[in-house]
Design a protein around this nucleic acid. Structure first.
Lengths: 220, 220
DNA sequence: CGATCCGTTGAGGTGCGTCAACGGGAGTGG
DNA sequence: CCACTCCCGTTGACGCACCTCAACGGATCG
């Protein structure tokens, strides 16, 4: 239970209080955890695997607003319905916190709340980066930003930084970056041809020169 | 001091603690409040006027990540530098909370923290809406979404909903919606010609049929 | 009354979307 | 074990929504 990110820097009784209201669950790849508009009865913490969050337009156009990995939170909301849908990309393990009980814990343990607040502001900063990407970057810059993001996150989680593991489909990447699958595919081959990246077995991508990719991501 | 949004539902001593560390300031239109990368020494609360937040790419491309009005917060960050720049659109009044003192208040008054947390999650939901807009909507849908957003916000603040006051320039709107000024201008004239909106004196826009505009914003 | 800024409009170009075809891998069923 | 289907990723041909470049008029200001 300990390496649960919410629990970093918490006292034992706080961790115990959280553990008491927790249910753990395992979800297959490609399954819906909850859908936009559902009653927001719980929040979740990803402990393993990858989860995607997305919003839909009435005609089916989709925008993936984030990919979550271990330690990330979903369902943080002060509304009574979810504002987005959540679906697993790979098999995933989740901790489920019923909302009412969670709110009681928040009231009792300000440190837990402080931690969640800090995570929310971090996510807000990430959201602003993503807006810059969606509104102002070219396809190549988007793909390079995406690869850098995956690499940096893997590093922060103590996983391999360089052959980056990319578990999501081209369609998911496209819907995350505001592109089509075709453009994603074409851009990958373009980067492959120019020797910047190379695709490996098992959905892994080797990044040639990290600094060069970073510069491309920033449009330099 | 009372109608300061952070202070809604707070006890008197909490309000007093906040008031004690507050400095109020007035900023001219078009002035920088802080810039991306500056040491994050304070957070601010807008009490009147409009403020824009933005991020830049090295070559000058700009993405405005939000327009703030009275009650909104800026500078919420657990990093020690600002992740974005903030600039006034109109004359604005701000409350300034030095970071260190603010953190002491947060520790002393969990309710204040709870309120800020709630505001952060609300902003996060807005950010996800904006990602959907930037990644998947057409120019017309973007403009209609923008007008609806302005109208709804004005309503929430008790200001006029229908001739919407639009204080920002075409360039600002373009950088907020991921478009160019020319496209913004052309889309406005297109909406004007089809009778959906009409431009009025003093940067006001009259919305013809709110339901129709809402449908256009959602791509229906 | 020149200078500057802003919004608008036109003409032309292009990055990415759309549509279509194809190949490979995975699952399925005989 | 082989057909068959389905899904995914890739590639090509073509079109278009939006960008780029350019010009112009009105407002504001010294």
């Amino acid at each position: 239970m300990r390496p649960l990110t919410v629990c970093a820097a918490l006292e034992d009784d706080e961790v115990r209080a959280l553990a008491e209201i927790t249910q753990t669950l395992r979800v297959e790849a490609g399954k819906t955890i909850f859908s936009e508009g559902d009653a927001a009865e719980a929040m979740y913490n990803v402990t393993s695997g990858t989860v995607k969050l997305y919003k839909l337009l009435p005609d089916g156009r989709r925008q993936i607003t984030g990919f979550l990995g271990s330690g990330d939170f979903l369902g943080l909301s002060f509304d009574d319905t979810y504002a987005y849908s959540a679906e697993t990309v790979t098999v995933a393990a989740l901790c489920r916190f019923p909302r009412r009980k969670m709110e009681a814990v928040l009231d009792a343990f300000p440190k837990v709340q402080r931690r969640l607040f800090s995570m929310a502001t971090t996510e807000l900063a990430a959201a602003q980066d993503q807006m810059l990407l969606l509104g102002r970057k070219t396809a190549k810059e988007k793909i390079c930003s995406f690869l850098m993001m995956l690499s940096q996150r893997a590093g922060r989680r103590g996983q391999k930084e360089n052959p980056v593991f990319v578990p999501m489909s081209r369609a998911d990447i496209a819907d995350y970056l505001g592109l089509t699958t075709e453009t994603v595919s074409r851009t990958f081959t373009q980067l492959k041809t120019s020797g910047v990246i190379s695709l490996q077995e098992g959905n892994k991508i080797r990044l040639g020169n990290l600094d060069a990719i970073y510069d491309m991501a920033e449009g330099i």
